[in-house]
Design a protein around this nucleic acid. Structure first.
Length: 573
RNA sequence: CGGAGUGUAGCGCAGUUUGGUUAGCGCACCUGGUUUGGGACCAGGGGGUCGGGGGUUCGAGUCCCUCCACUCCGACCA
C-alpha cells in the first residue's frame, strides 16, 4: 500500500471523550470513527486488523472441526418468545418492526436462531455432534456503552454452538474449545488467563472466561501467586482457616453499644478485631414473582460478593434495601445479627463464619450487640440456617487449591465458554432420536469471542505513550518504509524497489510516500503501531538506511544491500 | 435507569456571566514559494442551520421553555 493513496488519516489531538488508551489510539490512528454511542465505522486499516483476527479464529475453529455458518442478524421475535428470553433479556434486546408490523430483533446472541436451524435438519444421534460457528455482527442496546471498542452496542462476535447426544460428549467439546481458545489467544500474542466464571443469565452448568490482563479491564480476577488457580471474583473461593480469638469471654452477653452502627464504630468501642465481628448486609432480593428482604452475614473484614449472594438464594437480582424497607421487615438497622433475627427473615451466613467463635454481632435490638457469640451449633439459630460462600475474595486470602496467597488483577473478558445443557433445546422442543428411538433434547454448549473487543484489548495490553505496538500476528502492515524526502528521486526509487521486494516476500509493507517531512512520518509510525520501520533518508547517499523495532525501540543502521534480510531478521526476532 | 456535565468549521477550543457591527483562535484543508531525520516557515485562500424546535426582544451563540444527541461516575452488562 502506498500511504499517499491510502484512506488513512491520523490525528495529533485525542478526541475529548476518549479516556482509555485503546480508544484514544484507535481514533487518533485513524482506525475507527464514532457514528453514534457505541457504534463505530471501521476504516480500511481498522478492517485489516479485524480481518487478521478473524483469520486466526477461523483457522483454529476449522481445525477443531467446527463449521462456519452465517445466521441472520435480523431475527423473528417469535423465536425469543419460545425460550422466554424476549422478556428476560430486557431493554438490551433491540426490537424492530417491518412494514407489515411483524416483530424482529437485532441479534444480541444467537442461541435461538441456531437451535431453530439445527432442529429443522437434525433428527438422529447419528448426526451428532455438531459445532456451528459464525463471525458476525451483534447488537446489544447497552445502557452505557463506553471505552470505544471495549464496550460497544454494535460489535463483531465469534459465536459457536455445539450439539451433543450426551453430557460426556459435551464435556469433550468444551475442553476442545478451551484448547482452541488458548491457541487463538496465544497466536494473537496476548497475555491472558482462563478463569472460572459465573454462568449468568445465559444459564447452564459450567463456564470459563478468557481474560486479557490489562489495567483498564472491567473485571476483577483472582489469581494464585503459586499455582494456576484463576477465577473471576464473582465465583472465586478461598481456603477457610480458623483463627483463634485471643479474647475469651466467659459468657455470651448483650452489651450496650449506643449509636454504634458500623463495624468500625462497634469494634473500636468494644476494642475488638473486626475479623471477629459479623457484618450484616441487607438486600432486597428480586425473584421472578416476588421481592423479599434477605440478610447476608459476612465477617467484618469481608465484603459481600453480590453475584455469589444472588446465586446462593436463587434470586434474579439483588437491589439495595432502603432503611424504611429494612425497618418494615422487622429489622433494626445497625444492630442486625443472626441470633434472635425475626423468624420470617431469610438469611445466609458466609462459609468463613461456619464454626467461628467469640464473635460480636448485632442483637436485633436498638443500641445492643452480642459479645462472645459462636456459630458452633447451628441449631441455636434454628434449622433454616444456610451457609454459603458469599464473601468476596480479597488480596492476601489463601488459594483454595494450594493455600498460597491470592492476588487480584484486572482483566478484559474476550472469550466465554458455557455448558448450556438443555436450557434452550428443551423449551424450543429441539430433539433427536437416541439409539432406542427415544426423543431427547440436544445437549448444548456455546462459545463466544468478542472479536472487535479483541482489537481494543490487544491495544490495552500493547501500547506506550506514543501509540499502539501491534503484535505482529494482527498488525495491519508489518513494515513501514519511510521515505524521508519524497522529492529526492534516489530515496523514492530505492524505497519503491524495497517495497516491491517485501511485498513479494509476504512481509506486508506500507510505503510512506506522502509529501510530509520526517517528523510526522515517524510519529505516525509510532502512533499507528507497525512492528518495524525502515527509514530511507539522507544517509542513503552513503549506502545506509535505518531499521527500527517499534516494540524494543532498537535502531540499527544497515547497508542498503542487506536491508531486506535484516528486516526479515528483525521481524522474526 | 440514578447522579453530573457537554453541544460553536473535519478535530481541539474561546466567546454565553452582563443580548448589540460581518462569530473568533490553534490544528487540519486548498494555492504559491522556501524548507526536508522528530509533528517547519512565509504569503494568500476556502469552510459555520452556534445540536433541533418554540418563545422573549428593535436585536439572541448569549435570556426563557422544550426536545435531542454525546460524555463521565454509578447501577447494569452471555
Amino acid at each position: 500500500m502506498r500511504w499517499s493513496r491510502f484512506f488513512l488519516y491520523t490525528k495529533k489531538e485525542a478526541p475529548k471523550d476518549a479516556v482509555t488508551p485503546s480508544h484514544i489510539y484507535l481514533v487518533r490512528g485513524g482506525y475507527i470513527k464514532q457514528v453514534a454511542a457505541g457504534i463505530y465505522d471501521f476504516t480500511p486499516i481498522g478492517k485489516m486488523v479485524l480481518d487478521n483476527i478473524r483469520e486466526i479464529i477461523k483457522n483454529e475453529m476449522d481445525n477443531a472441526g467446527a463449521q462456519e455458518v452465517m445466521l441472520s442478524f435480523v431475527t423473528p421475535y417469535e423465536l425469543w418468545e419460545e425460550t422466554g428470553r424476549a422478556k428476560k433479556y430486557g431493554d438490551e434486546l433491540l426490537r424492530i418492526e417491518d412494514r407489515k408490523g411483524q416483530k424482529f430483533v437485532l441479534s444480541p446472541t444467537n442461541e435461538e436462531s441456531v437451535v431453530d436451524l439445527v432442529r429443522s435438519y437434525v433428527k438422529s444421534y447419528k448426526q451428532l455432534p455438531i459445532n456451528l460457528y459464525q463471525i458476525n455482527l451483534k447488537f446489544r442496546d447497552e445502557a452505557r456503552p463506553r471505552f470505544g471498542l471495549l464496550r460497544g452496542r454494535e460489535f463483531i462476535m465469534k459465536d459457536a454452538y455445539s450439539f451433543h447426544a450426551t453430557k460426556e460428549d459435551l464435556d469433550r467439546e468444551f475442553n476442545l474449545m478451551q484448547e482452541t481458545y488458548e491457541n487463538i489467544f496465544s497466536k494473537m500474542g496476548l497475555d491472558f488467563r482462563v478463569v472460572e466464571a459465573d454462568s449468568g443469565a445465559i444459564g447452564g452448568s459450567g463456564s470459563r472466561e478468557f481474560m486479557v490482563l490489562a489495567n483498564t479491564g472491567e473485571d476483577d480476577i483472582v489469581v494464585c501467586t503459586e499455582c494456576n488457580y484463576a477465577a473471576n471474583i464473582e465465583v472465586a473461593t478461598k481456603k477457610h482457616i480458623k483463627k483463634e480469638n485471643p479474647i475469651k469471654t466467659e459468657i455470651i452477653e448483650e452489651v450496650h453499644t449506643p449509636g454504634k452502627k458500623t463495624i468500625e464504630e462497634v469494634c473500636e468501642f468494644l476494642g475488638i478485631d473486626p475479623y471477629f465481628s459479623v457484618k450484616a448486609v441487607v438486600k432486597k432480593a428480586i425473584f421472578d414473582n416476588k421481592e423479599e428482604i434477605v440478610v447476608f452475614f459476612v465477617r467484618g473484614t469481608d465484603t459481600l460478593e453480590e453475584t455469589k449472594a444472588k446465586n446462593a438464594i436463587g434470586a434474579v437480582d439483588l437491589a439495595d434495601a432502603s432503611e424504611e424497607e429494612i425497618e418494615k421487615a422487622g429489622l433494626v438497622p445497625g444492630f442486625i445479627g443472626p441470633f434472635g433475627i425475626p423468624s420470617n427473615i431469610k438469611y445466609v451466613i458466609d462459609d468463613d463464619l461456619r464454626m467461628a467463635e467469640e464473635l460480636v454481632c448485632g442483637a436485633n435490638k436498638k443500641d445492643y450487640h452480642i459479645k462472645g457469640a459462636g456459630l458452633l451449633d447451628a441449631n441455636l439459630l434454628g434449622n433454616l440456617t444456610v451457609y454459603r460462600d458469599i464473601a468476596a475474595v480479597k488480596e492476601g486470602d489463601l488459594c483454595p487449591e494450594c493455600g498460597k496467597p491470592l492476588k487480584i488483577t484486572k482483566g478484559i473478558e474476550v472469550g466465554h465458554i458455557f455448558k448450556l445443557g438443555t436450557v434452550y433445546s428443551e423449551p424450543m422442543n429441539a430433539t433427536f432420536l437416541d439409539e432406542n428411538g427415544k426423543a431427547k433434547p440436544f445437549i448444548m454448549g456455546c462459545y463466544g469471542i468478542g472479536v472487535s473487543r479483541l482489537i481494543a484489548a490487544a491495544i490495552e495490553q500493547n501500547h506506550d505513550e506514543k501509540g499502539i505496538i501491534w503484535p505482529k500476528e494482527i498488525a495491519p502492515f508489518l513494515v513501514d518504509i519511510i521515505v524521508s524526502d519524497v522529492k529526492k528521486e534516489e530515496q523514492l526509487s530505492f524505497a519503491e524497489s524495497l517495497y516491491e521486494e517485501l511485498k513479494k516476500a509476504g512481509a506486508k509493507p506500507i510505503l510512506d510516500d506522502r509529501a510530509e517531512r520526517f517528523g510526522p512520518k515517524i510519529a505516525d509510525f509510532e502512533l499507528v503501531g507497525f512492528p518495524v520501520c525502515v527509514i530511507v533518508g539522507k544517509k542513503l547517499k552513503d549506502g545506509k538506511v535505518e531499521i527500527r523495532n517499534r516494540k524494543t525501540g532498537e535502531k540499527i543502521e544497515v547497508n542498503k544491500e542487506e536491508v531486506f534480510e535484516k528486516i526479515l531478521e528483525v521481524l522474526n526476532s
